[in-house]
Design a protein around this nucleic acid. Structure first.
Lengths: 140, 140
DNA sequence: TATTGTTATACTCTATAACTATA
DNA sequence: TATAGTTATAGAGTATAACAATA
């Protein structure tokens, strides 16, 4: 029986390796991890300001500004000045932005789904329960 | 009962979140992920050439050269010309390099161990088995 | 005065192309 | 001629400091 420390070590390595494999799956290979994370935030929240995005991704405002510029030039999002508070700019995905996020999520889940299909029902149940536990660990 | 596709989605999100939390734990906050990955490779293999490192990290030789320069300037590794084939440079960690890797591994495992201690024995067993399964998925 | 966004500047990581030294 | 490493150059992500516009 492994010690808790040994279990930690194995779980840490497995988590890094699986995350790396999943990150490699994306609909537009030119998109960086930082850009995809921003697209994902806007996909889930439909409209956020620059400061909100910077806070959520835990990066500086100038850094987020640069990433948003790239995504705007790439044609994935649009800036619109907030009519109530004109200091703010609301960032929103356009059709191309929503499409690339949907395609990336599909691709990653398809890759993982294909792998899970090869496992037994019991093993899949173990991974499903583990995912809940891992989610809990990460948010502590 | 969730579908396999739904299980995939939950596992993907949990994996990303836990990996992110673990990556944030490091002995020298000035070290980037790329630099830590190189230190880790050299810790496991003791001596590698620039080309070997670039291949393992799936990065170009000039990119790896730059990362190695940073690590050399930071005092974590040394370059030595290969006596047999003088085109090659062997890269090796010094004491400081080995120490920072050991400290980072300890810190990450300690963080995770503390969280695992708060779980039941059954939940820990589930995560241990899941780690084996995830490792298998990642190497397919 | 405080907040939001932006520009200026600088450093790292990434790449490709071109170069040097060695085999 | 081929390979190992390096330098040159350029684009993206990160930061802090300083600025303009707005509240």
């Amino acid at each position: 029986m492994a010690t808790i420390a040994e279990q930690s070590s194995v779980l840490r390595l497995a988590t890094f390796r699986l995350a790396r494999r999943l990150r490699a799956q994306k609909a537009d290979q030119a998109l960086s991890d930082a850009q995809l994370a921003v697209l994902g935030e806007l996909y889930r929240h439909s409209s956020l300001t620059l400061t909100q995005l910077a806070d959520r991704e835990k990066v500086s405002a100038p850094s987020m500004n640069r990433t948003v510029n790239c995504l705007e030039e790439a044609g994935y999002l649009v800036r619109t000045v907030d009519e109530v508070d004109r200091r703010k700019t609301n960032l929103t995905l356009n059709d191309a932005g929503r499409d690339v996020v949907k395609a990336t999520i599909s691709q990653r889940d398809a890759w993982l789904t294909n792998r899970l299909r090869e496992l037994s029902k019991d093993d899949r149940a173990t991974l499903a329960r583990a995912a809940e536990l891992m989610g809990g660990l990460a948010t502590q």
